[in-house]
Amino acid sequence: MNAIEVRDLKKCYPGFELKNVSFTLPEGAILGLVGENGAGKSTLIRLIMGATGRDGGEASVLGTDVRSPEFTKTKDDIGVVLDEAHFPPSLNALKLGRIFADTYTRWDGETYASLLEKLELPGKKKIKDFSRGMRMKLALAAALSHDARLLVLDEPTGGLDPMVRDEILDILEDFTRREDRSVLISSHIVSDLEKLCDYIAFLHKGELLLFDEKDRLLEEYALIKLTERDFEDIPKEAVRGVRRGKYGVEALVERGLVDRAIQAEHTSLEDIIVFFARGDRE
């Protein structure tokens, strides 16, 4: 079974359009959704979770159409962390645990208590007095305490210091040790996703420019640095993005389509994303 299947998903707002997004996330895999602010990552996540209506296409999660009434039950298998904790600020972690114990059929109070302890989250302190990092860790603790098969995280590491980000990524790595567990995580911090993900989706101005296995992307694309004159000999279909500077041209190319004699540098995921985004400006 696939964890997430999306076909030609569309959503229009005044001034923004999510255009025919399609991808499949196999069960047990981790997908990183990258995109600049306003690219449509949160809209896509809201559509995938059935929280908003779509203007076209289909979406199913853990084998259930997100618009069907059965999806309410399916959400019992999904842990959600949004860009903020979104919990009532006057509550504390213990009261929140009691609410979630009545929400999820497989809520595990012991797991929750041990996560609170591990993440050094006080049980009785009001959520409004938590730092942003603490609130995000609390949201993660709640999402990980009901034996979820899929985690959906929308910018969970945004605005956090590197130590907390690292802590959160460690927890996510632990979660995915079991083979049937999948993760969809959106972020504009590409280095976080590079550490964690099996698949990368790049959303740019509402359009899915890229969806592939991370390792394949890193193998398939390379960075070349040439003079303007040498660059003219590179087949246009090989070029995915170009940056022109004083000393020549830097371009992201498909390795298989350029002459092997041309020296190509290994590239990072961040380079690939940046050059893909620049591609339409060149």
Partner: peptide
Amino acid sequence: ALDEQSRWDDLALMLPYS
């Protein structure tokens, strides 16, 4: 109003509540 202010309503739509 408090649900909207804390954006609990956004989260609740993604939790197992109809």
